[in-house]
Design a protein around this nucleic acid. Structure first.
Lengths: 234, 234
DNA sequence: CTCCTTTGTGAGCACTGCTCTCAGTTAAGA
DNA sequence: TCTTAACTGAGAGCAGTGCTCACAAAGGAG
């Protein structure tokens, strides 16, 4: 739906297309800058002003403000995924989980508004186009890989099985991560990821104000609890 | 700062003041209705139109849009706190925690935009006035009471102590909940509350889309994990 | 070279939060 | 009781927003 210009039957990256892509990136960069300053209520006109162009020209690249935000969301998903993947492989599974979690938190602290865009409350009347879910899974897989490898090397507790529809959904998750993996372990991993997500959001969205100041230590405390509950062993 | 009309040295609830309070409530009710329909970007003019009054008249009651939102936030905190307090006392500590968590989740599912207002990403350039933190603690105390009582009746595991600044902050938390309570238990309770918060937000903000459909069962699964990790025993 | 798609412009529409001045009304003080 | 001051509402207006539309350059495709 977005492919106004089609690249088939012409040079794979025509000059026009490349310039267009660069312009797109410039717009996104400017938008990101504005996002970092004033928060989620991003002004297209301000972005256009920053780039020295008429606001209407911006609509040649993004059909609407929501579409620009969606592009930023996808980029943010990719960025946090990349941050998680860039973590070196630590010797034990619990360490790996905790270090990846720290990487995610560090990225969020460095890019709070982008984190809010992605994991905060949906901005307008909630859209979440399906384009995003591809990039969204990247960071989850970074965690899933840790648990899957721990499962194969016997460093993950099995835990009691889960039946019913939830059990089946856990099974489907397990098959995605590692065929033959215990479904309940996949379920605990998913819940663990949500704990990561929740801990970071709680800190960023002000839930710890006037309560916890030792933020990094508290996050570490929480993540240690998460790996314990998931059943990762050294 | 908000007390334009002072109630001292006159009848405690003068007619003017009461009418003003009623009008305030009407505005908030209309705003809540609009919030439920179109989400966080609440339009003062639309609210005023709904009430059949000029938009400028609304500023006699709330100095700005942010102040109206703050009032809604406080009400929402109170509402979720009330929902948590209304839960009947179940026989065991784990049950109590899980049932209160379900009450919180049910309230959030019934009032998703208000939940987003309170526990989602801060709307504008982040304000969070100190008026809110009083109401914010209400729901937390509902959970804290469960853990505190379990601690006194020997239904909560002690766990290994935490030192450093975080240990001191846990100690301060413990003193608030129950003087003499083990600091690390208070810390785990706080982390547990954040897990409740994170689980509800993850469901509401679309993190489970295309992954988990058995939402209630998954939430129960998560909460069972939370009480296990906190160390609550039947 | 001639088309024709693409890119950018500026005016304009409907909307927003907010301020200001200008009535009315109501409550308090002499 | 009358007067005065505080309160409440209305409307115009300002600066800003997202978005649309006709129009003008400009570049590649044939």
């Amino acid at each position: 739906m977005l492919s106004v210009w089609h690249t088939d039957s012409m040079s794979a990256a025509s000059l026009r297309a490349r310039i267009r892509a660069e312009m797109s990136d410039e717009i996104k960069a400017a938008a990101r800058k504005h996002l970092a300053i004033e928060g989620a209520n991003l002004s297209l006109r301000a972005v256009a002003r920053d780039l020295g162009m008429a606001s209407s020209a911006l609509y040649r690249y993004f059909a609407s403000r929501d579409e620009l935000l969606t592009a930023l969301i996808i980029d943010a998903y990719d960025a946090v995924g990349a941050a998680a993947e860039a973590v070196p492989v630590f010797p034990t599974a619990p360490q790996r989980w905790v270090e990846i979690a720290h990487a995610v938190r560090n990225w969020a602290l460095a890019n709070p508004h982008e984190w809010a865009l992605v994991y905060g409350s949906p901005v307008p009347g909630y859209q979440a186009p399906s384009d995003t879910i591809g990039s969204a899974t990247r960071v989850i897989f970074a965690f899933a890989r840790v648990v899957a490898e721990a499962a194969t090397t016997g460093h993950a507790a099995a835990g009691s099985p889960v039946d019913g529809q939830l059990g089946e959904e856990f099974h489907a998750l397990a098959e995605l991560a590692l065929p033959g993996m215990a479904p309940q372990l996949a379920g605990r991993a998913m819940a663990g990821w949500i704990q990561v997500c929740g801990a970071v959001s709680a800190e960023l969205f002000g839930q710890l104000a006037n309560t916890i100041d030792a933020r990094r230590e508290f996050f570490e405390f929480q993540m240690r609890g998460t790996v314990d509950w998931i059943g990762l062993k050294a």
